[in-house]
């Protein structure tokens, strides 16, 4: 596949980078990323991946755009209120870059659909807003041997880690089991500063692009935390392997996917 003149111009700032080049840009165009959740994290991740020319982007979310989303979910506009988030996200991504094929899945992830959703994608981005989904995505990616980016945001804080099969710990290695419903506040209850999704969701897009290019070091074996009020990033080293992990350890007890009780942030209540 040869680039058109328009593509050479569109991706010129990528092509000039030695870590990307023509070869890397072609790799991106032939790659696929699934974004689960078209919210505060998924919005900037989707926009940067579309702009970067990731050839196939899947986006999964069952919700509709609500006026209270627009303070941070920059992929949606005022005119999109009431529209399916996946549709609004698709329109924005296609407007940014017609090279990108967007697949929409208007659903929440659950044990009976996640394996099917992730199977054709090279990298998964967890942009969900609740622990049942975060553990489900982790377990499914461990079982299907898929790399993914975990992230969480609340108030003025964010966190991020990358899982690559066989290379480092998974989310469950660190956090074991979901906290009981309502034990840890959601961002609907506690609030979140709008730009936090921009910072952390963009870092998720960065990890996806680096993984697809095979460039640099990924956030594998580390938890990155960001405290906006202190303006402090910290990269916390994690164990290389947690033998007792219930899903990726030596004697896994989580051998089937689990639908934990939902306490989502922004869903229909």
């Amino acid at each position: 596949m040869a680039f058109s003149n328009e593509q050479i111009e569109r991706y010129s700032r990528h092509i000039i980078l030695k870590e990307v080049g023509v070869k890397g840009q072609k790799k991106l165009l032939n790659s696929s990323v699934l974004i689960i959740g078209a919210g505060g994290l998924g919005a900037p991740a989707a926009m940067y991946l579309a702009a970067a020319g990731v050839g196939t982007i899947g986006i999964a979310d069952a919700d509709e755009v609500d006026l209270s989303n627009l303070q941070r979910q920059i992929i949606h506009s005022t005119n999109d209120v009431g529209k399916a988030k996946v549709l609004s996200a698709k329109e924005t991504m296609e407007a940014i870059n017609p090279d990108v094929k967007v697949n929409t899945y208007r659903t929440f992830v659950a044990s009976d659909n996640i394996m099917d959703l992730i199977k054709d994608y090279d990298f998964i981005i967890d942009g969900t807003d609740n622990f049942p989904a975060k553990f489900l995505i982790n377990d499914a990616c461990v079982m299907a041997k898929k790399p993914f980016s975990h992230a969480g945001i609340i108030r003025f804080q964010g966190q991020l880690m990358t899982y690559v099969p066989g290379e480092g710990p998974c989310y469950r290695c660190v956090f074991k089991d979901p906290p009981p419903k309502d034990a840890v506040p959601t961002c609907k209850q506690a609030g979140v500063i709008g730009a936090m999704g921009g910072v952390i969701g963009s870092l998720q897009a960065m990890e996806a692009v680096k993984y697809l290019l095979g460039a640099g070091d990924l956030l594998v074996g580390y938890l990155l935390t960001y405290d906006a009020l202190k303006m402090e990033f910290r990269k916390i080293k994690l164990p290389k392997k947690v033998k007792s992990c219930a899903v990726c350890g030596e004697h896994p007890t989580v051998t089937e996917l689990i639908d934990y009780e939902q306490a989502e942030c922004d869903g229909v209540l």
């Binding site: 959740g37 919210g39 505060g40 994290l41 998924g42 989303n69 967890d126 942009g127 969900t128 807003d129 609740n130 622990f131 975060k134 992230a151 969480g152 945001i153 609340i154 804080q157 964010g158 966190q159 660190v174 956090f175 906290p179 840890v184 959601t186 961002c187 609907k188 506690a190 979140v192 999704g197 938890l223 916390i236 989502e264 942030c265 922004d266």
Partner: peptide, 10 residues
């Protein structure tokens, strides 16, 4: 190090 649950993403 203290590692906190952070469930938001919305």
């Amino acid at each position: 190090e203290f590692l906190y649950f952070m469930g938001g993403g919305c």
